[in-house]
Nucleic acid binder design. Structure first.
Lengths: 344, 344
DNA sequence: CCGATCGGTTCCAACGTTGTAACCGCCCTG
DNA sequence: CAGGGCGGTTACAACGTTGGAACCGATCGG
């Protein structure tokens, strides 16, 4: 099932068939229809490997995320897939498991010789590692600002994490909470974590509250388990220190925290208000439903794919850009306590 | 960065380098080390497209699932990735969105000329469509028994859905529940849904209960939204008909159902016990934690990859097999009401 | 000491595709 | 009517890799 077979059947040369299937204009209408018929009769499909070998293009891009079982990444993958197929790309999804080697391998290994480009959500890999790669291979980073000595080393798309954290923390303060904790501080080497802590502190100051390091819970991962453990830790503090609200740096952390409160027999938000980040569907269906900062995932996906496509198309090196996607705060029961009926 | 570059640097022929990187034994130790050094100095990586073009093998397999935002599939993807890399394969994950055309395209299009094989979790595509594909392309199906006139048309890996449904329903009956509902009936063309209904009915009979069709709620998708709507529907039944337990055919349905009960101010499991299927982490962290049938996802992944690898290796057509993976019932608060402390 | 054997290496062709350049009628222009 | 231009088509080479055959020097049996 190759161009040769189609060519024989249509009675033309291989190259003419190639011209037809690629849609180049210099083909007469009569030959075009004849070739098209042969194509569909034989069920011909172009061979991506051969195409890639000859042109250097495969029409394939990869989305590499740390962990697919994280709803945020799964939902993002969904959007990236939709956006990419609108641009004529096929998306392959890879799970890096937060392994720096794996993250890098994607860009250099499989990437360089099979894929046209990579959208990478880095967790461990450092800007310095990525700098040489991004120079010669289309690469877009998600969710982390990646500077090397103060200059950008790759395109990246992200939300304003500082503002997002500020917004949600200010919301908690506006509800009258005075001992606001944070869960998700100091995740190893995570710029996202640092930025959210920054916004958290800004909002505390803005509300006239002081930052109490005892209420800033460290985690290793942004997952449910670490949220549960961190919240248990906060609950074991002396009563006068214990938080009356927590801002969790991810929805999974928040879900874990909520469960810890449930185990302890505490009321949400009566005793402790809980808020997260990610806008995952899981947060919406949680009981009580969970206040969350919702990043515009469709916008993130769209910006990332557009940017990657531009870089793939242009042979010249383009200047690296930073794109900010919108986000908004979705207030739900876990902070304001107002019972709602979901309207799906 | 090709074999040629490495060959020049090492002072040998291209073919010898090829022999070294593929690990064929007939290479002297001295040349091998010399070539290896050149390889690492230049950072050479084989070109999968060229390799695939020449050999017909790419070392790539795809896992195609309907929806990555479904925790079950995301967690499964995780396991498949691990198992495949142990077999030397790279996994590409594709989202079919339950579109039959897309499901088929994977096997015939990208599949046939880029991938060595596909693990497909079909949602809409019918056995008849897949039969011609499976004959000439390594294909393993997950989660659905696919018969065509009573004979198997492809390998498949699944749990015993009838037994799983029977187990969990029997558990609800053993708790003394007499009006047990089912959510997830009649999902269009879903064999899984039929099998779970079958097991549900078997267990009812076994417990001396009668099957009341009013308590069997239809859904279009196995998602949270449909679970919520279905449960609202069951709650709107006349009081004497209303269920005192529901078996949901997926954890997402169960989470949605739980939220509907929460909205209605009902207690779980006091007023209504809830159980699901999938063993997702979300179910564990739900409040109250959700009783679920846990399919052994690692076993499913392992069986699927092993089976696919065998089929890829063998040039001869192998007989199609059916593999059953273990499952077990994990009883949690949403049915027995016993408060637990998670021990992660 | 000659021919066979063998480990190690090289040469050649081919996988399916596309870019470049050449080609071939044909119509138009001078 | 010769020369130029042009739309449509084709021949050829090349992308990076590997299977198979050929090759080569050295060891070995007779």
């Amino acid at each position: 099932m190759t161009l040769k077979d189609v060519a024989e059947r249509a009675g033309v040369s291989i190259k003419t068939v190639s011209n037809v299937v690629r849609g180049v204009p210099q083909v007469s209408e009569s030959t075009r229809t004849r070739v098209m018929r042969a194509v569909s009769e034989l069920g011909y499909r172009p061979n991506p490997s051969a195409r890639r070998l000859r042109t250097g293009r495969s029409g394939l891009i990869a989305l590499a995320v740390p962990d697919l079982a994280t709803p945020y990444f799964a939902e993002l993958a969904h959007h990236v897939g939709a956006e990419a197929s609108a641009h004529g790309f096929t998306v392959l999804i890879e799970e890096t498991l937060g392994d720096a080697k794996e993250e890098l391998r994607l860009a250099t290994g499989v990437g360089a010789s099979l894929l046209d480009g990579v959208i990478l959500s880095p967790l461990r890999v450092s800007p310095a590692d990525l700098a040489p790669v991004a120079d010669e291979f289309p690469l877009v980073l998600l969710g982390e600002r990646s500077y090397e000595h103060d200059h950008v080393v790759a395109d990246h798309v992200l939300i304003d994490n500082v503002a997002a954290a500020r917004d949600v923390t200010a919301h908690l303060a506006a509800l009258g909470r005075t001992r606001i904790g944070a869960i998700g501080v100091d995740q190893p080497q995570s710029a996202t974590s640092r930025q959210r802590l920054e916004g958290f502190q800004q909002a505390l100051h803005g509300a006239g509250l002081t930052y109490d390091p005892r209420l800033a819970a460290r985690v290793k991962e942004f997952d449910r388990r670490d949220g549960l453990l961190a919240m248990r830790g906060l609950l074991s503090l002396p009563a006068e220190v214990r938080p009356d609200a927590v801002f969790c740096f991810s929805d999974m952390l928040a879900v874990g925290a909520q469960h810890a409160l449930y185990e302890a027999g505490l009321n949400v938000p009566g005793d402790v208000a809980v808020a997260g980040v990610d806008g995952s569907e899981e947060a919406l269906y949680s009981t009580p439903s969970l206040t969350s900062v919702v990043p515009d995932k469709a916008a993130i996906a769209s910006l990332a794919v557009k940017c990657l496509a531009a870089r793939i198309r242009s042979r010249e090196p383009l200047p690296f850009e930073e794109y900010l996607a919108p986000h908004w705060l979705e207030v739900r029961e876990s902070t304001d306590g107002v019972r709602r009926r979901l309207s799906p």
